[in-house]
Amino acid sequence: MEDRAIQLQLGIGAMVLSLFLLFVAIPSWVSSPSNVPNIILSPLFWPNVLAGVAGIVGAGMVLTAYWRPKPAWTEPPDVPSRPAAFARLAGVAAIMAGTMYLLPVLGMVWTAMLVFALLAFLVRTRHPIAALVCAVVVPLILYGFFAHVAGVAIPQGNYVRLP
């Protein structure tokens, strides 16, 4: 994407964020006791200041977007196929969502094995056998270190429990 377009979008985004914080988020999700002697000491003060600064920075970005020179050439696409790239992004998002769901159910080791294998498959590794071996070995080694050396209670899940 063109750099000045990015600058403009970010500037507008920052101003919208600022307004959202000032009029929706801070009044709704930041609470303050009624007996605060001075606004400067209020829990609301700092978030409001930051929201204001975000708005000023956003305005600055919008202004400077117009000063930026137009590029003399069009940037080539960074990926051969954008729909395929977005599909892969959806895939990694699904893996992350699945991880959050499976961690308490399957346990960390088995979930990590699945995550490793799926991610290697998603990036189309040229070494599938090595990836599969690592998918099994790496989580087991990490489990050994964290559970038995560091003493961390790694989630074991409801099915197969490791020693």
Binding site: V115, A117, L119, A120, V123, H127, C134, A135
Partner: peptide, 10 residues
């Protein structure tokens, strides 16, 4: 393709 899945698990 092997390094980055390993980093994720780590």
């Amino acid at each position: 393709g092997v390094l980055f899945p390993g980093v994720m698990v780590l």
